[in-house]
C-alpha cells in the first residue's frame, strides 16, 4: 500500500514537469541546489560507510580502501 502511494506520488510529480529554459534556471543552478554531495562531506561519508553496513547510491565509497580503522 505504502509503495503504491509512493509510486503514484512520484508519477504525479514527474507529470507536473514543466519545460524550464536556461535563463529561468538561476535557482536550479545555485550551488546549494546541486543533486550531489559537497566536497566537504567526503570524510564523513567515508566514515559512515565504515561504521554502517550499507553503502552506495550516494556518490560515496562502495568499495576500495580498507575501512580497517
Amino acid at each position: 500500500m505504502k509503495k503504491s502511494v509512493l509510486i503514484i506520488a512520484l508519477c504525479c510529480v514527474m507529470a507536473s514537469c514543466v519545460q524550464v529554459k536556461e535563463y529561468q534556471k538561476n535557482k536550479i543552478n545555485d550551488a546549494e541546489m546541486a543533486l550531489a554531495n559537497r566536497k566537504i562531506e567526503k570524510t564523513e561519508l567515508n566514515f559512515q560507510s565504515y561504521r554502517e553496513g550499507a553503502s552506495g547510491a550516494n556518490a560515496g565509497k562502495s568499495g576500495g580502501g580498507c575501512g580497517c580503522n
Binding site: 510529480v13 514537469c17 524550464v20 534556471k25 535557482k27 536550479i28 543533486l35
Partner: peptide
C-alpha cells in the same frame, strides 16, 4: 535527474 520546475529538481 530531472528539473521539475524552476524551483525543484529530482
Amino acid at each position: 535527474s530531472q528539473v521539475i520546475n524552476a524551483d525543484f529538481q529530482l
